[in-house]
């Protein structure tokens, strides 16, 4: 869905002329392509950001897959399956984009499974009732889309192209989530209670998806300069809040923030303080589902090892028999 807490490494000792020429290309809105010269720190930042983003997609399959066998109607089951499949596809597009920078998928995957690489904190929260599937689509994908639309214009070509594709596919995700919320919020008292419970639990974690506040995110400035990132965390968060609050009002649900207030002068909402301690803690691995999510990813990878090996072995046999035929000919 998107990556959080990206950090730039310090600039290396690259020739000043090359750095200046690179910056000039960026300033001219030229896209950087895989084999072009780029500062090591640019490459490193991108690999980290894109792979975090990819990891988020595939870990993000899990909280939704939790409900796929329990979806309440055939239609909902098909929609949910297609949506989770999209997340896997998005992970794949992003791993592919990162591979163009010289990082292998295996390395990225190993980093995820060893706990070295991070992924979006939001997926370490559980999906406890069916309305959570609505809330994930509406709030989590809604927040992700804010980020991703901004990333479509990112300066690295393969990343930007993946994001364009992802945004196109993702456009149904938020709508299907909101549709579930409408059914739940306008349904029976029990359904409405589930919907309120879902927003109570997902509202703040969704706001955290935009990453630390600008004043605590000193590293974003280089990313902005390189146009990897094009809007600040706080700007995107504000945009999300302003878009979402009226949608919650339509549902008749209460946003769990008693400080939330429309500022008539700006037309924007002011909001209460985000619990950054919780955010840091979840990112560090101490969220309610970190262990469970990692265990699921590790298990799938381990259980799949013999399958991958068998396919490799078979491909080798095929190749050998082809080579033999050539020799005979």
């Amino acid at each position: 869905m998107y990556s959080q807490g990206l950090r730039d490494s310090a600039a290396g000792d690259e020739p000043v002329e090359l750095l200046a020429a690179f910056q000039a290309r960026i300033d001219k809105e030229e896209k950087i392509e895989p084999r072009d010269w780029m500062p090591a720190a640019y490459r490193k930042t991108l690999i980290r950001q894109i792979s975090q983003h990819a990891h988020s997609e595939i870990v993000g399959q899990l909280p939704e897959a939790n409900w796929v066998t329990r979806a309440p109607t055939l239609k909902r089951k098909l929609i949910l399956l297609a949506k989770i499949q999209d997340e896997a596809g998005h992970g794949l597009y992003l791993y592919s984009a990162a591979e163009t920078l010289g990082e292998s998928r295996k390395k990225m995957y190993d980093d995820l499974l060893s706990g070295k690489a991070k992924y979006s904190s939001i997926f370490n929260y559980p999906t406890l009732n069916w309305a959570d599937i609505g809330a994930v689509g509406w709030l989590v994908d809604g927040a992700a889309i804010m980020n991703q639309v901004a990333l479509c214009r990112t300066s690295y070509g393969p990343y930007s192209r993946s994001m364009v594709r992802i945004c196109k596919e993702e456009s149904f995700h938020q709508r299907q989530g909101y549709e579930i919320m409408v059914k739940m919020a306008h349904g029976t008292a029990q359904q409405k209670a589930m919907a309120q419970d879902a927003i109570n639990r997902f509202w703040w974690p969704a706001l955290m998806m935009f990453g630390p506040s600008d004043k605590d995110s000193p590293h974003s400035s280089q990313s902005m300069k390189w146009k990897i990132k094009r809007f600040s965390n706080d700007d995107l968060r504000q945009k999300f809040i302003d878009a979402t609050v009226p949608q919650a009002e339509y549902l008749g649900l209460t946003i769990p923030d008693k400080h939330l207030k429309l500022d008539d002068a700006t037309g924007s909402y002011t909001h209460g303080e985000i619990d950054w301690k919780e955010f840091v803690n979840v990112i560090k691995g101490n969220g309610p589902c970190n262990q469970q999510r990692m265990a699921a990813r590790i298990k799938a990878h381990k259980d799949g090892a013999w399958v991958r090996e068998a396919a490799e072995a078979y491909a080798k046999k095929l190749q050998n028999s082809k080579d033999n035929k050539k020799e005979v000919a």
Binding site: L92, Y93, S96, E99, R165, A311, E312, Y314, A315
Partner: peptide
């Protein structure tokens, strides 16, 4: 060109 993917053989 639309992207890339991993496979063990061309059919896959």
């Amino acid at each position: 060109h639309v992207g890339s993917l991993h496979a063990t053989d061309s059919q896959m």
